[in-house]
């Protein structure tokens, strides 16, 4: 019963520290506009026309207890991003996530514009196709694939010369699902809202000239392609927290 006041007290102390720090530092050291772009994948700024940019990393997804029950683990997936500038503000995005027995390939288009010297915005839409197959003696003879669509909006904020924050919101739409066990198959081709996701990603140099993306994505969705083989039957949005870590190549 007495935990809440203490939490509030701690929150207040931290807030006071934050404000004091901001007050102490604010105004004395004005922001310096970076003279060139930083390596970035999530930050809503288009690559120069014709320029490619890419990243390779891992995404860890914590399994929801509704599906995996007592087994609560963070499942890693290899995450490869590839982007190409089409014009000053328009760029193509490609993304491959794979756990080898199941993979997800996304293609999208994004339009990005600066709102100020610090604040950037992008809107876009990604179409992804996923596929999974499991053939294990006495356990699985199953395959599934599907299509999902992710309309997205990103806000990027240049915190300082080497640190960029991106907040991205995504809608998750189911477009097609086909699941097969042995010779039986079921299909769902109704377009329906599956959920949404919010990401907070920091991009910055890590060591030497190596830049990284480090972030957190929280998806609230009805279906998650990584868990197709668990045959989720719930018509409820489950919570899928993800940790994102990628090297910008």
């Amino acid at each position: 019963m007495h935990s809440k006041p203490i939490r509030l007290w701690l929150s207040g102390a931290l807030l006071a520290a934050s404000v004091s720090l901001a007050a102490a530092q604010g105004g004395r050291q004005p922001f310096q506009q970076p003279d060139e772009r930083q390596p970035e994948i999530y930050f809503p700024q288009a690559p120069r026309p014709g320029e490619w940019r890419k990243s390779l990393g891992l995404i860890f997804t914590t399994t929801p207890p509704e599906l995996t029950e007592e087994v609560r683990v963070s499942v890693p997936a290899v995450d490869f991003n590839l982007q190409k500038g089409l014009s000053k503000k328009l760029f193509l995005t490609g993304r491959l996530q794979t756990q080898f027995v199941q993979s997800n390939l996304g293609l999208g288009l994004r339009w990005a514009t600066p709102l100020s010297d610090r604040l950037f915005l992008s809107v876009g839409d990604d179409m992804t196709g996923w596929f999974g197959a499991l053939l294990i003696k006495d356990v699985f003879n199953s395959q599934a694939y599907g299509l999902q669509n992710f309309p997205n909006l990103s806000l990027g904020y240049r915190l300082n010369r080497d640190l960029q924050l991106t907040v991205r919101g995504e809608g998750i739409l189911d477009m097609y699902y086909r699941s097969k066990v042995g010779t039986l198959a079921v299909v769902d081709n109704k377009w329906q809202v599956n959920g949404f996701a919010v990401s907070f990603v920091l991009e910055q140099p890590f060591y030497g000239n190596q830049h990284v993306s480090l972030g957190f994505r929280a998806a609230y969705s009805n279906f998650n392609w990584q868990f197709w083989s668990l045959y989720d039957t719930f018509d409820r949005n489950l919570f899928y927290p993800q940790v994102i870590f990628g090297f910008i190549l």
């Binding site: 520290a17 934050s18 720090l21 901001a22 922001f31 300082n160 010369r161 080497d162």
Partner: peptide, 23 residues
């Protein structure tokens, strides 16, 4: 609050930094 501390702190001290992306 922690997020605000992180973000406010990171931003307000921006000018004090060197360019950390030197080669």
């Amino acid at each position: 609050v922690v997020l605000t501390v992180l973000l406010a702190g990171l931003s307000e001290t921006a000018g004090a930094q060197s360019d950390s992306s030197e080669t």
